[in-house]
Structures are given as C-alpha cells and as structure tokens.
Design a protein around this nucleic acid. Structure first.
Lengths: 167, 167
DNA sequence: GTCTATAATTTGATAGAC
DNA sequence: GTCTATCAAATTATAGAC
C-alpha cells in the first residue's frame, strides 16, 4: 500500500462517513486526492472493492485502539465509549460502519460483510470480557445511536448526554 | 393528496428506509407504483421536496402513535420503545429518520430540517414528560442504535436485547 | 394526470498512450 | 502510475401531446 492508495482510502472514509456508500463518486475522491478518476480505478478496480477495504481498515483500527485501551487498564465499556467519542470529536463525523449499516439495503455483498464483521466483533469482544449478550448489544446500540444523534443535530455534546449513564 | 401521491410516498419511504436518500431514483419509485418517472415529478417536483414530505409524514405519524400510546396509559419510554419495535417488526426496516440522519452530509437542506425536527420533537416530548435531557438523549440513542444493530445484523431480536434494560 | 421523448449531467468503468 | 478520451448506463428534470 503506497501513499496514493492511503490517500484514496482516507478520502473515501471521510466521504462515506458524511454521505454513505451511494453518497460519493470516484470523481469526488479523485478531486480530493488530486488525481483523475482513472487513477482511482487503478488502485481499486470497483467501488465495492474500495468500500470493503475502507470498512475493513476502519474495523481493524477501531478494534486495535479498543484493545490498547483495555491493555492500558480501561474496562471494556469505557474503552468502546472513548473510541467512539474520539472518532466523533476528532473527525466530527459518524461511525463509518454506522452510516453504512443504516443503509444496509444499498450495500454490495462484500461491503455488507465487512460492516457486519465490525458489529459482530464488537459484540464478541464485549462478551469475551464477561458482559452478557444483552448488555453488549445495549452498549453498542447506545454508542451508535449517540453518534447518530450528535451527527444529525450537529451537536457533539448530545453524545455525552446520551452516554452519560453508560458503564 | 390522492392515491397515487400516497403510493409514491409509501414507495419512497420503503426505499429510503432500505438505502437512504441517495439510494433510490424516481424511476425506482415509478416502477414500484406502476407509472412513469415523469408522473412522479408531477406529484413531487424535486427529489428534495419528495423526501422532505416523506420525512414530515413519518414524523407526524410516529409522534401521533406515541401520543396515543401515552393516552392509553403507557409511560413515555415504553411508548417510544414500542413505536420503534413495531416499525422494525412490521416493516422489517430501519427508522426513516435514523437512516437519513446517519448520512446527514448527503441531505438537501429541506430534508435535513425535517429529520432534525423528528429528533428534536422526540427529545422535547420526553423532557415534557419529566425525563431529564440526559435520559431523553439516552433513550432516543439506544432505540435508534438498536434499530441499526437489528437492521445490519439482519437479526430483529437484537433490538430486544439492546433495549431490554431500557425503562 | 399520465404519457413519450429528450435534455443535461453524472456515474462506474475501460482502452490505450506516455 | 497517471493521464486523456471515451463508453454505456443511469440520474434529475422538463416540454409538450393526449
């Protein structure tokens, strides 16, 4: 993976988190990165391939950050909460897999598979840390919903309100 | 509003809840309803107009159903929970305003305004019933996130898991 | 109100030169 | 690896006949 590949994935992640899978074009990304759309196709043959790669990278990064937080002494719930909170405050955007998952009906198979893997991995990681299936679902749902609320209202503080009771 | 207008709005609601604002076309709706796309434009001049009308109708219906539930003796949280649960189980789909709100960056102004109104009205209705702003945010977030989780995992039971502790 | 026809633009994707 | 050029299809939207 070279610099251009990464820049394309960065631009795609940014655009997907703002407008979803059907909300951006190869020309948008090309313009963001400073190349032509044919060059984007050189790095990622299809839109499906690109979005799946972006979702996979997002999942891996996110889970690694949470793991690190736990290794540093956080409990699972606090680690997930701070992961989402950081993603919101640093980037001012929704969770990538939340945006994609909400419009799941518009996703090609390969992309849907990666998005599902994010949520399944989240639930699995929490239950492995002794949370019940119910509690894990509640935590993930509240965090995703809090991101959504903050995103749509344009009010980042809504995330903190919605997750204040979460522990 | 005549039958065709309603049928177009029904089809649009269905398609938006599956794939979002950018996930359907006028030709999709025309084919769903059994007319040509020019006829859809006769009823709704632009896509923005149509989506805004659909979001407004969704909000009005949803709030009315919750109000009725409360009038029948439910408490606010239970009423909202059953409203979302019904929308999920009856239609097997996400919340319309949840889908649209997640990809807020892809929404024209008029549509974003209606979607925000749904969430603001929800928060207002709960705080009017003596819930704190924090609690109201938590309830809305958990419900929207639970819909998202059930939707992306294709597992309606995930909604019940995620909302089991909500009251 | 619905149709046919079409304009104007955008889309995902490919061929081939450099 | 990136470009120019282009394709075929799809998109939102309009004009005008019936």
């Amino acid at each position: 993976m070279n610099e251009t590949t990464d820049a394309i994935m960065d631009a795609a992640e940014c655009r997907i988190r703002a407008g979803g899978y059907t909300g951006f074009s190869f020309r948008d990304l090309a313009s963001d990165v400073g190349v032509k759309s044919a060059s984007v196709h050189y790095h990622f043959p299809t839109k499906e391939t690109l979005a799946a790669a972006v979702a996979r990278r997002y999942k891996d990064r996110f889970l690694a950050a949470v793991d690190q937080d736990i290794a540093d002494g956080s409990d699972v719930v606090a680690a997930w909460k701070s992961g989402f909170r950081q993603a919101l405050h640093r980037d001012g955007r929704m969770c990538l897999c939340g945006v994609l998952g909400a419009a799941a009906g518009a996703l090609p198979d390969e992309v849907l598979t990666e998005v599902r893997a994010f949520f399944e991995a989240g639930l699995a990681q929490m239950t492995a840390r002794r949370l019940t299936a119910e509690k894990a679902s509640q935590v993930l749902a509240t965090l995703e919903g809090a991101m959504l609320l903050a995103n749509v209202l344009g009010r980042p503080a809504a995330f903190d309100d919605a997750t204040a009771a979460l522990r």
